[in-house]
Design a protein around this nucleic acid. Structure first.
Lengths: 133, 133
DNA sequence: TGAATAGGTGATATATTCATCACATAACGC
DNA sequence: GCGTTATGTGATGAATATATCACCTATTCA
């Protein structure tokens, strides 16, 4: 069994957090506006619910995954988006599932008549409740 | 700040683990071979390093993210891949970064002359020695 | 009914993630 | 140099993720 490309694992881990994805969104939008680099402090202010340290910790995770590159400019640090790992995730993994996107689910739904309720899936279990007492 | 589509958050979380991605790969490959459903026990045997419970727990996470749908067939459970959430991730998030894929990094590298070393940056930027073993 | 097989669950231990405060370092302006 | 501003780091704690064992439930078949 081929072990996975875990060089991409830090990227997946980095993207698993919504705040980190928001940071990437902010950097992307900043670049669209011509602002090539976003100061760390500005990113911190964009997250009033997070401490400065928390934002910087998220930035560190993003840097380790090579999704963000930082460059010092005077007394501030400018953060740049690097979309290359995102492309890598798409090309090496996501795109492989494109073949399944089409009508796979449709026929799937037909086959799946009796779903197996998972432990915490809130998917409205059928009346067959068995409560442990 | 608009909260992110956190309906996709369980999907990101589910994909953050390499074993879970491997499970999806197995299901995808099984479907390519015409085996539409893969029994849970077969998935368990595909991971000799993991206990049965661990694999089932991973399956549960995948089901909660709607990446896997299970259907009971006699005394075994067949697991089906559902690629729709993967498509959603691509369309709602990944594809937005396609504009940055082109030559953005090239010009970025030119600007980034003095990188700010991150706390644990293991990315070995250039020939610089990296002592961390 | 009872044995064998496939799957599910409760309690629980450890590792990692995510957050905080207090303090340290670097650059700018006086 | 000194104070202000912008950023970096060590120690630390709570929440979550990941893994295990022991035991329970459900289906098939003798």
């Amino acid at each position: 069994m081929a072990p996975h490309h875990d060089e991409l694992d830090p990227v997946w881990k980095a993207l698993a957090n919504p705040d980190r994805r928001s940071i990437l969104d902010l950097l992307r939008e900043a670049e669209l506006r011509g602002r090539a680099g976003t100061p760390t402090g500005e990113l911190v202010m964009a997250f009033p619910g997070l401490s400065r340290f928390a934002v910087m910790q998220h930035l560190e995770v993003l840097q380790d995954a090579n999704l963000v590159v930082a460059r010092r400019d005077g007394r501030m640090v400018l953060n740049y988006l690097n979309a290359v790992p995102i492309r890598a995730i798409y090309e090496r993994w996501v795109s492989r599932f494109e073949g399944q996107w089409a009508g796979a689910l449709l026929s799937l739904k037909r086959r799946v008549e009796s779903r197996v309720p998972s432990r915490s899936s809130a998917a409205a279990p059928r009346g067959k409740e068995h409560s442990r007492g």
